[in-house]
Structures are given as structure tokens and as C-alpha cells.
Design a protein around this nucleic acid. Sequence first.
DNA 1: GGTGTATAGTTCTATATAGAAGTATAAAAC
DNA 2: GTTTTATACTTCTATATAGAACTATACACC
Lengths: 243, 243
Amino acid sequence: MSALAGDNRLPRYQRLADALRARIVDRSWKPGDRIPSENVIAEQFGVAPGTARQALAALVDEGLLERQHGRGTFVRRPSFDQSLFRFFRFSGAAGERLIPESRILRRSVDVMPSEVARQLGVSEGSEGIAMDRLRLIDGAPILAEQIWLPLPRFQPFLAIDPADIGPLLYPIYDASCEQTVARAEESLTAEAADATLARLLRVARGTPLIVIDRLARDYAGDALEWRRSRGPAERFRYRTEIR
Amino acid sequence: MSALAGDNRLPRYQRLADALRARIVDRSWKPGDRIPSENVIAEQFGVAPGTARQALAALVDEGLLERQHGRGTFVRRPSFDQSLFRFFRFSGAAGERLIPESRILRRSVDVMPSEVARQLGVSEGSEGIAMDRLRLIDGAPILAEQIWLPLPRFQPFLAIDPADIGPLLYPIYDASCEQTVARAEESLTAEAADATLARLLRVARGTPLIVIDRLARDYAGDALEWRRSRGPAERFRYRTEIR
DNA sequence: GGTGTATAGTTCTATATAGAAGTATAAAAC
DNA sequence: GTTTTATACTTCTATATAGAACTATACACC
């Protein structure tokens, strides 16, 4: 039976939630893993089952855990790649979801722009991996992406043959660099296509483009990836509900 | 003690939540009201206090209620007007929030466009109130709005002198027509400014504009207002967190 | 008038317990 | 081999209860 650490002025269920969150952050529980049952946890930490449930509910609320009636409690596997679909309406003939192909235009090591370095939380003038990609559906370009990865954290990524890099990057980060993207902040605006982007995306200069900036972080909150994606606004629609 | 209505295969806390939600929908509990305490509710409906708490928590989650430790449980007062600030970065010199002034350009009764009628859930060819507004900060236009309100629901709104209509419409709907906006669906894209919008917003033709479509609904889910707002993309930035 | 104090009412935290409902696996029956 | 049954384990629902923490109000006191 582990004791509950932390400020004991805080409620027990919160301290328990902190303890469980720590296990996810330090990767002793990995995405997809089943964690012990609520009764076992309650016993291990010496709290009532109801208190354990409250802690678990809080972590479900944070998006860290997923519970399945009768099966168990699992570390949620973050999947963002579908998040693009909340933005762009790529749909096949049958309206099914499809993941755009990826064509890597460039990958190099360079000094990061100061704004990127700042957002990634590394010192000004640091080097990082720069990658430009074009995303296409049926050969038609729909998204131009600029990506920056900090070094040395992503050093192993450089060893991967670009030909082996599929459209989904986060599983690759996970497998090759043990970096798990847990959440991301996105910020969205629009601008007119300049000559370069117009050529890339095969639209007229001045065509309105949606610009999505994304900063991806791991469970600990460290920034892992900076990404800017641009696509023709015409294909773009973002929906949300407010209350 | 009221009995718990509804399908008794559903959990009690859900049926209790349904019963409480109904009181908000039928306006016997209005926004800002304090509702009975959890113990009173538990007794009234013949459930355990814990079950009542679970029902209340569900409604808090839906955004219908707000609880304050030691004070009570209140019907949440929906306030959307700040929702604009999640989108546009209007900030004064001190960075304080400010509500853009409003200039009403037109108000008339017309046959609704079929798409608007469809979204408002009224029959094709129905008449409604059309209103065009310009939102300005320090005299500079930043948002052009087109608004449609269904008739006869909003008949009393026509009696209001446009000069008496301030920037915030929802409180006016509430006071004059007893229509409370409880939630809204927004959908967002971008387009190039045509000649009319360019003149209105004082930008060059072809300038990228953000387009926000909003469908506002009451607690019962009836559509109350259709609104399309357009502003220069340059002043626009939408932020969200995904996980 | 202003300050502290008691009191009642509220939500929040925590415990203990019982059984329902869903899932997976192994054993039994056919 | 296939289907059914039993079993164990999981989360979910529901009850009952006690006290902590917070808020507002009325009252006594100076």
C-alpha cells in the first residue's frame, strides 16, 4: 500500500489522481495499457473505492484514461490525425474518411526561427529538424506543412529514410524517439496565398488559405513539434458548439 | 415527493437529470435562479443524496447548471457575447476586453433564403426578420453581420426602435420576446472579400475574410437565430486545445 | 457604527456496502 | 467442433452516513 504524497490540504481524490497521472507521465503506464481495477487501486492507496472512482473520473475528464464497462480502465491512446477531419472536409466518393498521402519536399537540420524556438521552449539559436511536406488526395495538393522538431530529442528521426515515412508522423515519433504526443494547442487564422504557396497548392495567388499552427506536447507538457499547415479555405470548415 | 418518470431501464440519476432539465427547458427555473439544494431534491424525488449529486453533476457537465460551494446550485446564465473574443483579437490599448459598437444598417421583413429557413427549421418561403449590422471599434469596422430571425416568434422585436438596440442582442431577445439563447453551433471558414464587403469593411477586394456561421438555439433545441459574420482574417485568431 | 460570534444552510469530501450490468475465459454439454 | 453454462472480474448504479469547508445572516458586544 503506497501512501498518498503531496500537500495533504488537498483532497485525497486529487492527490490520488496526481499519483496516477504521474505513472502515465513517466511512461510506467503507456497508451493502450490496462491499469489496475478501481478496487485494487483503492486498496493499494488505502482509500475507499468511491474515492478511487472519483480520482479515475477526474483523469477520464482530462482525457488521460478511458473506462470500459466490464473490461477495465485503459490509458487513452491519443489520436490526432483524425483531428484534421474536424477542419478539412476531405471525403471520398462514399464520404468515408481518408488520410491524405504525404510527399516530403525537404528535410534538413537548421537554426530555428526564434519564434519557433520560443514556442518549443528551447534556447534561441538552437538547431532543429525542419521538414516540409505536401499532403495530397488523389494527387491533388490540399495542405502544405512546415514542421520543426527540437534536437537532440529527435536525433533518431534523422536516421529514418524519408521513403519510409508515411502520412502519420506521431506513431513514428513514438516508435523511433519514444516521444508520445499527448495533446496539442492549435491556433487558426487565414491569409492570402503568396507566389510559393500558390504554386505548391495549385491555386491562384491571393486565394484565401486557412493557416493552422499546432504545438504538440507530451504528457509532461514539453513541446515536441511545431507545425504550420496551410490549405485552400474553400475546402475548409471548422465546426464547434458553444454554450 | 415526485415520482421519477421515464423509462425505468435507465439509471435513476439519468431520469432525475431529465426531470431537472425539463424544469429549465420549460422555464420554471430561469437562468440565474437558485434551485433547491441537493438534499431537498433527493428527498423530493425519493433518491439517495449521492444519486442526486450524480444527476446535478451531469447537468453541470452539460453547461446547464453551476454549483458554488456553500452558496447553492444555479441555472447557468449563458453568455456568448464573449465568445467573439475567442475568435477575434479586439483589444484596447490596455488589452482589456471590449464589446464592439453596433451600427444597424437595415432591418426588414422578407422571405428567407431557403438555406436559412431550413436551418431555422421553418417551412420554405416563410417570412422572417432580416437585419444587417456593422460592428466597429473606435469607428473602424471589423465585422459585418447578417441576421435572420423567424416569425412570428420574434414579432415583438420589430416594435423596438433600432436606436434602442445595443450591441448585445441576446438580452434583448430575452426581454422582449422571452427567447433565451442556450447554446449555438458555429461553423467557420474563409473567403475573399467581394466588392460590397470590401467597401463595408474598408479593405481591398480579395482580402481574406473569416466567415462565422452561427445557429443559436434555446434550451428546447429550437433554432432562434441565424447569423453570418465576416471580418478581416488578419484580426482573427481562433485557439483550441485538442487531446 | 463597527467587530466579532454563533448558527443554519449549502456544497464538497470521504467512507462503507450491496448488487446490477457488462466482458472474458474456462468448463461442460451437445 | 460448436454451443451453452458457469465463473470470475470489471465498471456502474444506488444507498446511507458523517463530517469538513464555505457562505450568508442574525445577534451580541464593544
